[in-house]
Amino acid sequence: MSEENALIFGDNDYTAEINKNISKYYNNVHIFTLNEDKNVKNSFDLGDDWDDLSDKFDMKECSAFCILEDIAQNIFLTISLRDAFPDLNIIALAQDKETEDKLNLAGASRILPATQTTANVIVDMLDKPIVTEVFHNILYEKSLLKIAEIKIEDNTVFDGKYPSDIEWSRDHGVLVISVVHEDGSKDFIYSSKSKHHPVKSGDIFVLVGYEEDIKQFKRLIGTKCEN
């Protein structure tokens, strides 16, 4: 990760789970509680004064997680942080679609849509139990299967080929789900659009495979991305 510090604003059950899951990707995770009394250690208020924070951290190297359970306060916090730090990577918790839209307007870089994600998980579990179990195991790292994103540095292997024409599974033991092109556009591997995009250096593949196969594939195309 490029960021050194994760700053989590709000101390609740969400915070505990997020901290548990992201801590290995940051040098430090700092949790701040909402408190009007700024003298309390690791606290913040919803005012405009963020000098303490910018004095303490290089905000360009930080990711901020706005995880307050009070929706209005969370939106206010997001807008305050965006106002103070225009380049800060802000990840905010949203309970519903309405909050998600407001947080986007408030300047959040990414949204963690709690209700929608949970609803998706429940419905998938009922409608597609096998798919859900497989993905659940991949995401929870209970399976040897991994999901990875790999950036192509050395394109001599796939020079001029189209993603859908490559025998990923037979030749490389991995399955590519989607490709993110250098210009930022995204294609699922077998979508009609992918027929018109030959593989180029700088493209990022999102793939599923066993760890060893992914490593071999990385060696083949010389990636800089991390798993």
């Binding site: 990760m1 994760a6 059950d13 969400y14 505990a16 789970e17 997020i18 548990k20 899951n21 992201i22 990707y25 940051y26 990711s63 997680f65 990840i91 918790l93 990414r110 963690l112 709690a114 209700t115 994600t117 949970t118 998980v121 429940i122 579990m125 993905f135 995401l139 929870y140 999901i147 990875a148 994103e149 789900i177 989607s178 993110v180 995204k186 699922f188 990022i204 999102v206 798993n227």
Partner: peptide, 24 residues
């Protein structure tokens, strides 16, 4: 179903593999 746990996983996927997160 523990919503907070799901959000923790989503946060991890987003932090570790944002492109894969988007794809999923």
């Amino acid at each position: 179903i523990y919503e907070k746990e799901i959000i923790g996983i989503v946060a991890k996927e987003f932090v570790a593999q944002p492109v894969a997160f988007e794809a999923i």
